[in-house]
Design a binder for these strands. Sequence first.
DNA 1: CATTAGCACTCGACGGTGGTGAGTGCTAAC
DNA 2: GTTAGCACTCACCACCGTCGAGTGCTAATG
Lengths: 353, 353
Amino acid sequence: MLNDRQKMILRMIVDDYVLTAEPVGSRSISKRPDLGLSAATIRNEMADLEELGFLEQPHASAGRVPSQQGYRYYVDHLLATDSNLSTDDLSMIKSLFTEKIDEMERIAQQTAVVLSGMTQYTSVVLGPQVYDTRLRSLQIISLSEHSAVVIVVTSSGQVHNRTVTFPDGISMAEVNRLVTIVNERLQGTPMYKLRSRMLEEIMREVSRNVDDYEEAIRMLDQITPAFGADEEAKVYLGGTTNMLLQPEFQDIHKAQHVLSWLEHHERVVEALKAVPRDRVFGEIPSIRIGGENQVDPLQDCTLITSTYHVAGVPVGVIGIVGPTRMEYARVIPLLRHVSKGLSEIYSKFYKGS
Amino acid sequence: MLNDRQKMILRMIVDDYVLTAEPVGSRSISKRPDLGLSAATIRNEMADLEELGFLEQPHASAGRVPSQQGYRYYVDHLLATDSNLSTDDLSMIKSLFTEKIDEMERIAQQTAVVLSGMTQYTSVVLGPQVYDTRLRSLQIISLSEHSAVVIVVTSSGQVHNRTVTFPDGISMAEVNRLVTIVNERLQGTPMYKLRSRMLEEIMREVSRNVDDYEEAIRMLDQITPAFGADEEAKVYLGGTTNMLLQPEFQDIHKAQHVLSWLEHHERVVEALKAVPRDRVFGEIPSIRIGGENQVDPLQDCTLITSTYHVAGVPVGVIGIVGPTRMEYARVIPLLRHVSKGLSEIYSKFYKGS
DNA sequence: CATTAGCACTCGACGGTGGTGAGTGCTAAC
DNA sequence: GTTAGCACTCACCACCGTCGAGTGCTAATG
């Protein structure tokens, strides 16, 4: 589609623009020593590239700026596929992963901080999601006569809890009996099946002992959210205000648009989960440039995400949000590297499942 | 210090400026029907008020703007002390508190969302802090041969957990024995004493059974953070991007300054906790205007906070961050009302302690 | 003596104007 | 195919005058 020289020029323009955020003129390209062409020649090529849709002109006498399609071609064909992280970057990542980690959630949070710190973009980390976890243990600990804490531990070591209040008809003793039954019979039940399995067990018990089984079901409904099946995975953001550093977001309203989108975590989760099928497995980053994001506030942004895995199963996503003028050459290998590292770390935790 | 007319004029200026964010001219004040004075008279009074330090002039031919001292006088002397929330506001608050709350943490989060939504400012909620909680139960649930989840439930129904890995020398059986001992002997121990009490118990056991007690202590250190004693209380922010709506933060750098401060939760906690002694008890809001905040990024902001309580003990803080040009007359009773409501809600939960 | 009308003055906001320079497109020559 | 030359475009900036809101001061007024 493009000849070699056009490719080279396109790459130079993108590289230059990513660095300076200023439209790139023909002269500045022709001055590069590695290709001995005059500005006029470059101009001709630029005009062609514009006609083909890879470049845009902010106004008639300005230089050229990569179009969305230009960035797309750049990441698809002009980027070295082998990762080439700087030693600085590598050591930063290394120190992230060798840090002592006391709580699983902290890893995700710390990853967000480090990613945004390294890139000057906003980072997004979708904490490890409950994909195929099973019940390890159900605990219930009474607080007062009519309330208790229900604790669910999954095979992956995640802990969920809910405070529940008992209806008058139900005593602590009855609850305890149910808990014992659950622990005896339902250990290893996949979390998404837990509610229906518990219902079965309650029914069986009810036919023998409990008077008011409607109350029992009502209580079960209180507990259910703790099973985490329908619970949104947690998002950790890092460097949201980095957005304001980017020249393309000097306009307050544009910035507000993106920032308030980031504030609504559920929308961010949704965007992060919309990963193309072919990028779900393996730590190959998915790149969505500008309009490729279905989300309106991200029309001027690029979202690069990478999935991390445990035993081949995708459990979470890390990502970078920045202007379309993104340092692709650095961010892509960075995300690949970090998600690979996360996969390893979490695999240690999840071994028990 | 100020005569009645000066007070009235100052109040009018503050009210006007809070509403419009435009410097207030003498004419617009004189046009008010309730005091029949000409613009010239107002000008004279304004000049006096400026000399006394209550007003400022952005430039020679502009109207007047309240100074920090002006706001201070306004909140101290010119504000009706009896709360007068609009029925709209009251019903908003009511629906917040009657909402079904399944998890304690959600209350705090939801409060942040509602506060920022109602005010167009940024809201800050310091989740209920562990002040005088005791150990209710310690659970340990094994994940794999060498790792387990430690769960601590406090008398207030809060659940903390940590994943720990055992050193080779220690077996699950030994750990279980320790847990049983702790549950038998240490229930009701104040959380802050828990570590030392556990140490005692371990020592006692060690002298009889366990070989390597250094390992036991190392493990204890892994668990300790879960006791929550030294753990920072969680902060929930609402409407951080509301900051960008305020005319005083149209300047990106100013906005960035404040927003990045808000991003560092530990600093926010510190600021929230620095409540004047006389405002710790009772739900009387504390108001820090501009420079009264020791924190640099808040020099142009007002932080209004209100403490909420359980059984007379302060357990958390809610607050609003906005420009010094804040709707004091609305925000102050609002916070008072909401913190009172939170006190009631949490009191129900904490009853068990 | 407090109040007020009148007036000169100040200063930011706004809009128009011309110069500058970076960058382009086109053409003709190599 | 490449390039030098040239006319052209257009954002940016500095400058300038106008406008109007608002002030401070002074002198007149009840």
